[in-house]
Design a protein around this nucleic acid. Structure first.
Length: 836
RNA sequence: GGUCGCAUAGCUCAGCUGGUUAGAGCGCUCGCCUCACAUGCGAGAGGUCGUAGGUUCGAGUCCUACUGCGACCACCA
């Protein structure tokens, strides 16, 4: 029964993690109230970063606490297939071999992604394990597991059957690099310095007159089908009803008067490109304008788009195949050459970029699948408004409402290969003209194609009995499967015991960056398919920044690898740091010094434990119940005090964690452990153990052990490894600390009189030490102290004299009878301190 | 453009529903290798709580404006 002089996290951490697994301690146990959480599934492509570390540390603290507190805890881990991100990774590998996915074909490509997933995809889970997370690995799921894929198909089909899903040609955000549609929230708007080009469009009838439009995207004029002005704009009243002949294309377009146009902006005249601008699209719909899609999927000019309309001219050949930015330069040059470019001015505006690859997105007219979202959003809004779901900190509820109130239909189809292929098929016989076969096995579907939606591939066309059915080549947005995560991981659509027991889950811990991507959608889908919220509480934690408050990013080179910190300072120190800085609603500025500071705390706990251990004689455990039940009358003051303080600490720690105040939790325990238990209680216990203050020595030993064990139990959720290590040395061969109940304060422990008395004595000791320092008294040198004050206080001090002697190095004490001194003010009672 | 958040010791931050001398960690100063711990012990310096008003018996804590940061949302070409 001994602790090594130094704590070695390198060997202790893996040892205990392996044993916890072996003992099945992460699996739900007992018959307590269920407490369940699902992990925000990290991307299979990911590696552990600070965000994951914080997110999972907080979840683990909750789980370990609840588990010890006798809840039946299930924490479901897993990973997300991360469609575009993963596809990009594997495509890059192919590129290194000089290949493209198109060259190897869809089937081979998907096999290749799976191979990659099996080989490298679970790295992040191993990293999570080294963080100590106590999730139930037997429940591990992957969003493309067979079970979860079935859930995805089921959800899709049900939405379709209830007309909450439709396929239609709409203007969507298109990433020309990923070559897929994106949902609105997958577009990151970025303020960018651009230009505003003022272009003169001549009237068809009188080319000498014209109207000047202002645009940030001159190349889109090739797709213009109208010009609009405000109906009450006096400048343009004379133009109403006129036709305009566009430069370059020579296309004749109408001039519209529409109040949407802002008279103040630019020239007050707006070119309308319904095929490449969301507003123009709306206007186009109102006036029945042609929507010309001037680009292909690569955002290169598509000559066919013009030829198909019967347009002619050598400009078509000139622009055909040109990239959109090249086209812009060409258009500007050509306009300038033709005298159409009136002027340009610098203009700052928000540019949309792909959230995966930062390519400037292109509004693009294509057939896509959409979720009709309003009917799903309404109950989801209600759930938060009525408190069925509580968002912490509540400020985020505002963002949630703002987004949900203005939510637009969700584009869920993606033109990539890695993901859940859409469970819709098309009949070659019925729909032949709408199915365009490309090279290899690629097909393209027109907007008129009529999908047959089914859970499993149909053998025959239900209409004509045809056998040649092709599946929709698109896959679903990754977030579609994530939205089902809280119930798909529990076995849905089967009515499993897990679902019954653990749904709705208790708490979701996540970052605000995926509030809309994920949280909002889980709420909508949970309510839709489970008729109940997916979780009761949503705890939204902050971002981990560097010590200067900068976002960590590879490009800035300020990324701190959590694994490095864990290796250097120990996982417990790292976890405790994260917890202690996780104040509600505030970003975390992580500095390495801070972690080092908490490593000292771990070390302090270790050494305090060594002290306790070396003072035990082996019989203490037998009498623990007795110790806990002892009456105040049987105890000396320090014992009464520490027990009372312990009770208060337990209450505060529980309250903190119950309210997701992880920083309070950490701070309360730090304070108690170091500054009450170590600084005072242990120091005073030395006298008791030496027999210098009377009382029973065995009782003092038991008290030391008892309080230390309570400290270990309290701290375990935050620093699981070192607490288990000490726990096991204190009681060899006993069950894991994880299976112990979380401390509860007993009413009799609270002893306000003892606390007041100790405060008084501690103040006296500090006053003496203070005076010693002021008079430059060497630390080892004993002094004589004269106390003056009310007789009652003097008597109290006299009873405490052995402690005063030891803790303030007092060799002799005198008690003068100055009744004038204020009662209870210990500092004032220290009349004089002198060398003797 | 809209919404929200933050401004408290040198640094990073607590301070929840307004109430005794505003706290912590790190850093700093001084003195100590005191038999658990120098990853330590003891003592100490350091803050007109962003600015200006207001509510109140009383405000870092509530209200208003301003300044400075930051975030999110957004179709003004």
């Amino acid at each position: 029964m001994d602790l090594p002089k130094a704590y070695t996290h390198e060997t202790v951490e893996p040892k205990w993690y392996a044993r916890w697994l072996e003992w099945g301690l992460f699996e739900p146990r007992g018959s307590g109230t269920p407490f369940s959480m699902v992990i925000p599934p990290p991307n299979v492509t990911g590696s552990l970063h600070m965000g994951h570390a914080l997110n999972n540390t907080l979840q683990d603290i909750l789980c370990r606490y609840k588990r010890m507190d006798r809840y039946r805890v299930l924490w479901v881990p897993g990973t997300d297939h991360a469609g575009i991100a993963t596809q990009n990774v594997v495509e890059r590998q192919l590129a290194a071999e000089g290949l493209t996915r198109q060259q190897i074909g869809r089937k081979n490509f998907i096999e290749r992604v799976w191979a990659w997933k099996h080989q490298a995809g679970n790295a992040i889970l191993h990293q999570l394990k080294s963080l100590g997370v106590s999730c139930d690995w037997k429940h591990e799921r992957f969003t493309m597991d067979e079970g979860l894929s079935r859930a995805v198909r089921e959800a899709f089909v049900r939405l379709w059957e209830e007309s909450l899903l439709y396929r239609a040609e709409r203007l969507i955000n298109w990433c020309p690099r990923c070559k897929t549609a994106l949902a609105d929230i997958e577009v990151v708007h970025e303020e960018t310095d651009g230009q505003l080009w003022h272009i003169r469009y001549p009237l068809a009838e009188e080319p000498s007159r014209g109207i000047v439009v202002a645009t940030t995207r001159p190349e889109t004029m090739l797709g213009d089908t109208a010009v609009a002005v405000h109906p009450e704009d006096e400048r343009y009243r004379a133009f109403h009803g006129k036709k305009i002949r566009l430069p370059i294309t020579g296309r004749i377009v109408p001039l519209l008067a529409d109040p949407y146009v802002d008279k103040e902006f630019g020239t007050g005249a707006l070119k309308i490109t319904p095929g490449h601008d969301f507003n123009d699209f709306e206007i186009g719909n109102r006036y029945g304008l042609d929507k010309i899609s001037i680009f292909d999927a690569d955002a290169k000019l598509d000559g066919q788009a013009f030829r198909a309309r019967g347009e002619t001219g050598d400009w078509i050949a000139r622009y055909d195949g040109k990239d959109r930015f090249e086209a812009r330069r060409m258009v500007v040059d050509e306009l300038r050459g033709g005298g159409y470019l009136e002027r340009t001015e610098p203009h700052r505006h928000a540019l949309g970029r792909c959230y995966r690859c930062s390519t400037v997105v292109e509004p693009y007219l294509t057939p896509q699948w959409f979720v009709r979202i309003k009917p799903l959003a309404e109950p989801a809004i209600e759930a938060v408004r009525k408190g069925a779901i509580e968002i912490v900190p509540e400020g985020w509820a505002n963002s949630y409402f703002a987004w949900m109130d203005n939510i637009k239909d969700w584009c869920i189809s993606r033109q990539i290969w890695w993901g859940h292929q859409i469970p819709a098929w098309y009949c070659s016989r019925c729909d032949g003209n709408n199915i365009i076969r490309g090279t290899m096995d690629e097909i393209t579907l027109t907007k008129e194609a009529r999908p047959i939606v089914a859970r499993e591939a149909p053998r025959l066309c239900p209409k004509c009995g045809g056998q040649d059915l092709v599946q929709d080549p698109d896959v679903l947005d990754t977030w579609f499967s994530s939205a089902l995560w809280p119930f798909s991981t529990l076995g849905w659509p089967d009515p499993t015991q897990d679902l019954k027991t653990y749904y709705p889950t208790s708490t979701l811990v996540t970052g605000f960056d995926i509030l809309f991507f994920w949280v909002a959608r889980m709420i909508m889908m949970g309510l839709k398919f489970m008729n109940d919220v997916p979780f009761r509480d949503v705890y939204i934690h902050a971002l981990v920044r560097d010590e200067h408050g900068q976002k960590m990013s590879k490009s800035k080179g300020n990324v701190i690898d959590p694994l490095d910190l864990m290796r250097e300072y120990g996982t417990d120190a790292f976890r405790f740091t994260l917890a202690s800085m996780a104040a509600i609603g505030r970003d975390i500025r992580l500095s390495e010094e801070r972690v080092a500071g908490y490593q000292n705390f771990v070390n302090k706990l270790w050494n305090a434990s060594r002290f306790v251990l070396m003072n035990l004689n082996g019989n203490e455990n037998n009498a623990r119940q007795e110790t806990r039940a002892l009456d105040a009358a049987e105890l000396n003051l320090p014992d009464r005090w520490i027990r009372s303080r312990l009770a208060a600490t337990i209450t505060e720690a529980r309250t903190a964690i119950d309210n997701y105040r992880f920083n309070d939790f950490a701070s309360v325990l730090y304070q108690f452990t170091w500054h009450e238990f170590c600084d005072w209680y242990i120091e005073m216990s030395k006298l008791a153990l030496n027999g210098a203050v009377g009382g029973r020595v065995d009782q003092s030993r038991r008290f030391l052990l008892e309080v230390l064990e309570q400290i270990l139990l309290l701290l375990h959720p935050a620093i699981p490894f070192v607490t288990e290590e000490i726990w096991q040395v204190l009681g060899p061969n006993r069950p894991s600390i994880m299976s112990e109940p979380y401390p509860k304060p007993e009413r009799r422990w609270t002893d306000r009189a003892a606390e007041a008395e100790m405060d008084f004595f501690m103040e006296a000791i500090r006053a003496i030490r203070n005076l010693r320092t002021e008079m430059n008294c060497p630390p080892g040198r004993e002094v004589k102290v004269v106390f003056c004050g009310p007789a009652e206080d003097l008597a109290a001090l006299r009873s405490f004299e052995p402690y005063v002697r030891a803790l303030a190095r007092v060799g002799a004490a005198e008690y003068g009878g100055d009744g004038e001194r204020p009662k209870g003010a210990a500092t004032a009672m220290v009349g004089s301190v002198e060398l003797y």
